[in-house]
Design a binder for these strands. Structure first.
Lengths: 209, 209
DNA sequence: CTGGATCCCTCACGATACTG
DNA sequence: CAGTATCGTGAGGGATCCAG
């Protein structure tokens, strides 16, 4: 399509089209059904989603699995080749995060986007070999991050027993970008804490744009 | 444009549009004038190139410089922020290289694409602390790679005094992918060597898809 | 209800010609 | 050389509809 015999051109063909990498992002968090993807990417037309999934499948990035367990449904899953995109998606998300200012009013945050945001901004050197656990609420989105001896796991959903529960709006980005100190964020009411509130400083140091 | 408050979505806005990353690729090799970019990307319409350059400039990825030295001309150059894309472009090119089969007849190889191909497939562990220098000819494209104590430099153009000069077609990919042994490639005439021909084995081990 | 297919409209892209 | 102008086409956006 670009007329170039070049790896980057081939990659652009497969995952460089509109919506392509966002679909991969969501699949990196967990397997998804068609409707899940549509819910996570509300602005994508269904015909485009269908087309992208077909392209990705033909390129060996995505696998289409038929589930018979509850009833016949389709699940989309990344192949091993597709999973190789993880570091690239994380790096590109980290790069693009520097372009994030305030959120537009019509912009949403999804569980998948936030999970990848935390995974991409994680700084192992900030935590050393310590451990911690956070439950994060941003709007309706709930996810949790567990750091076990320096190893990070971020997943969607609640985590009972999190050491610290953080409730915030998109302003959480300002904290992660260092534009707002943790103390200021709490004071202004932009962030609410529950649990070991002193851990919030560590959170802000651990996830950094 | 995607309705998501997400770093990856912002990155897709800026460099994810058609031709975007290929323009960045070419600028990673060297500063380029409008005509240089057009020559390196023959299939891009000039109005699209104009638009992309404007988008990239507004995002702070590209800087537009006015040269007065020979005469008034414009040169496009990556900003520091734009240079941060280097590892991502290399990784994505490496990933996409796995999708490269035979070249289509209408596909071209440019100096920029080949330079980045070598940079992205370089395996430092294959050379250790040794040194070597290669001049590579693929079609009309000439470039050279110099490895000095394990440190790689790949640039367009000739290099007088290269230890080994390699002349090949797109089949050089098959060697780098391990589908063709260096010996087979030479025997079949797909690759011609000049200089320290025994170095070709090392070349094939050093640049690996 | 899920997993799409279809329709229609718009706009971005592609090709080419032209200008300061 | 560095774009701008014009115009045709195809892909994307949005809503609705349909089959299992």
């Amino acid at each position: 399509m670009y007329g170039q015999y070049c790896g980057l051109a081939r990659a652009s063909d497969v995952v460089g089209e509109r919506w392509g990498l966002l679909i991969v992002r969501d699949l990196l968090v967990r397997d998804q059904r068609f409707g899940d993807l549509k819910r996570g990417l509300p602005r994508i037309p269904t015909n485009v989603l269908t087309k992208r999934l077909k392209t990705l499948e033909e390129a060996g990035v995505v696998e289409r699995k038929l589930l018979t367990s509850p009833r016949n449904t389709v699940v989309y899953s990344l192949s091993e080749f597709g999973r190789d995109l993880e570091d690239i998606v994380l790096a590109l998300g980290r790069w693009g995060a520097k372009l994030l200012g305030e959120a537009d009013l019509d912009e949403i945050v999804t569980p998948e986007s936030l999970v990848m945001a935390l995974r991409s901004t994680y700084r192992p050197e900030a935590v050393g070999q310590t451990s911690a656990s956070y439950e994060l609420h941003v709007g309706d989105v709930v996810l949790h991050a567990i750091i076990d001896q320096g190893k990070l796991s971020v997943e969607p959903g609640e985590y009972r027993g999190a050491a610290l529960t953080i409730t915030a709006g998109p302003a959480i980005r300002a904290v992660m970008a260092g534009e707002l100190t943790p103390a200021e964020a709490v004071e202004s009411g932009a962030v609410a804490l529950e649990g070991e509130v002193t851990l919030f400083d560590q959170f802000a140091a651990t996830f950094r744009i």
